[in-house]
């Protein structure tokens, strides 16, 4: 199935985000081998050059490393993966807080609303 990519944001950035997400959520485990550029490009229905660019960028950050002859692998540095995970969590939270502020909720109000919602879910 093609990946869900928006046409109004650079594709290679969305590919990076998607692969990062797959690494964090455990679709790819540390040390796993990534499919080839062609396979990934076909799966995502994108241009192989775009996929190549995204993978090179992931390599630059260290999340993915390549071995000359045998392909690309997910980093075995679990701390790095955890760091990215917490960074993403912080981003999601600050975005959420921003949206709540737009609705007119102060931070403490948001927190108590969240508590209510969580307790409501538990019932």
């Amino acid at each position: 199935m093609p990946w869900n990519l928006d046409s109004d944001r650079p594709i290679f950035i969305q590919i990076i985000e998607k692969i990062q997400m797959d690494i964090i959520s455990g679709v790819y485990k540390p040390g796993d081998k990534l499919p080839s550029v062609r396979e990934l490009a076909a799966e995502a229905s994108v241009n192989p050059n775009t996929m190549q660019k995204a993978l090179s960028e992931l390599e630059r950050t260290g999340l993915v490393y390549s071995q000359r002859t045998s392909g690309r692998f997910i980093t075995e540095d679990t701390k790095m993966i955890d760091d990215i995970k917490s960074e993403m969590a912080r981003e999601i939270i600050s975005q959420f807080l921003e949206n709540m502020q737009k609705l007119g909720f102060q931070k403490d109000e948001t927190v108590s609303l969240m508590k209510q919602t969580i307790e409501g879910d538990a019932k």
Partner: peptide
């Protein structure tokens, strides 16, 4: 194409 998306935020 990615330059267009990046610079203009448009498809």
């Amino acid at each position: 194409v990615d330059d267009i998306r990046e610079n203009e935020n448009k498809s």
